[in-house]
Design a protein around this nucleic acid. Structure first.
Lengths: 253, 253
DNA sequence: CTGGCCAAATTATCATACAAATATGGATTG
DNA sequence: CAATCCATATTTGTATGATAATTTGGCCAG
């Protein structure tokens, strides 16, 4: 038998994506990240989820497998599904990060992110200066040109993201790439949070140019310094917006 | 209808875990990471996998959803499943990393890992010195005591891993925790690769003690320096083993 | 040549049934 | 009374077969 379903959709897992198992996964994922189910807690069983979402067991199980693959869950026969300890959560997964941000204080989020960015991005810039291929340098350059054209405002976010991701790719180290997701999330949400995406508007373009030039010249030391300088500006921008607490509205379900 | 299955298991997805969908996921994951299916390539469809593994569509689909959740795949109706570009792969996922190591040159692996470790671990130690809770400090201390007791050899690996993971946890930054998987993999495999896990056996314990003391005193600068010093020793150990190319045998299917 | 429409391929979802694992409590036995 | 074994109930794991939804690609008409 298939519990639920033929009845009515009790709690309609909203959100887009149009895949039901995806919606279910997002809904459950959000509940875990928001603390409705704490690490160690046992989740409702498959039959329960079927009733809750009005979905078939097949669909629910695919959602559960998705969450398991992201380190949020582990299922055992006769026991059910248990929430994994936080250190196993794949926080650098795009979905998990989105669910995380949806229920986190934005200031705490930016604080953690900037801490890591200041550790990594100067070194990423330095590595890029040493390891970049001509093609990768071109990608960075083109992103920078687009930034210059876009001037300020919302349109400048996308090229900015591309710039930082291209830089990251140019570092040529697989184990650094997962941070692209974090950087992207940070830059994208910075605008919505501070409503001015550019820290120190006058220096925004020049400081990026500083990184580009250093990477072009292959000057690791200068690249490191330029990247750090940009991040310091970003710190100031964020610090200039105290507990505004505009809820980040990134996640979907 | 259910393709395959009732016939015979053509290519028996070996490996442990005892869950069929897990074995299938590991087998396909290994094939993707080893380049059998390159990014952009279209994979066999569900019916094909059913025949190949002698599994039901239910099982195959759960495996595919698992891989999708790790960023290796994306499925679309009428198209099939396509391998995602490498930058979307969740390389800091435990499984993905295992599959990656299974088909990678060990020297290249250690090179990339050490590059990242030298960037992160000194700063992790510094953050731990500033942010650690008493409980976290105790965890680090206990791990260190176990290392001292264990002396050299294989038994010293586990406490060493615990030491570094406890340090990481004490940094108290969510976005750093995913690196625990990489650090664990590195330390665990170092022993098998160099057959001497301890770099500079005489200095192995003292250098860890240096980190512990600095963290205990809350001296960020000293912690940073001590962590870097340890990593430099590790570099030397690895460098001392040129193209031995003992294949790492971590992954399972 | 252009636009729209049809058909085929593939994933998405559903319903149902049975298998396997395992925690739990109760019976059995020393 | 204690320890062991065992039956049973619960929950996930797997199989099967059917139908829906999506979308590419080509066909056809204007």
């Amino acid at each position: 038998m298939n519990p639920g379903k033929s009845s009515q959709k009790a709690s309609p897992a909203k959100s887009a994506g149009s895949n039901l198992h995806r919606k279910v996964a997002q809904s459950i994922g959000n509940q875990i990240l928001s603390g409705v189910y704490a690490p160690g807690a046992i989740l409702p069983n498959e039959a329960d989820w079927c009733r809750i979402y009005g979905a078939s067991r097949t669909t629910v199980r695919e959602a559960v497998k998705t969450l398991t693959a992201k380190g949020l869950l582990k299922s055992r026969t006769k026991i059910g599904s248990r929430v994994e300890p936080r250190e196993n959560w794949n926080i650098l997964d795009r979905d998990v990060l989105a669910w995380h941000m949806a229920s986190m204080d934005p200031r705490a989020f930016f604080s953690s992110v900037q801490e890591v960015r200041k550790i990594l991005e100067p070194e990423i810039a330095a590595l890029a200066a040493l390891n970049r291929t001509p093609q990768q340098l071109r990608a960075i350059t083109e992103a920078f040109e687009d930034m210059r054209k876009a001037k300020a405002g919302l349109n400048s976010v996308a090229p900015d993201v591309r710039f930082h991701l291209a830089l990251l790719a140019a570092a040529n180290n697989v184990f650094l790439t997962p941070f692209g997701i974090m950087i992207e999330a940070a830059l994208t949400n910075m605008f919505e949070f501070t409503s001015t995406h550019n820290p120190e508007p006058d220096m925004f373009i020049p400081k990026h140019e500083g990184i580009l030039k250093a990477v072009t010249r292959g000057n690791a030391k200068a690249a490191r310094k330029a990247a750090l300088s940009l991040l310091t500006d970003t710190d100031h921008t964020i610090a200039g917006f105290p507990a505004k607490a505009k809820k980040l509205k990134k996640a979907k379900a």
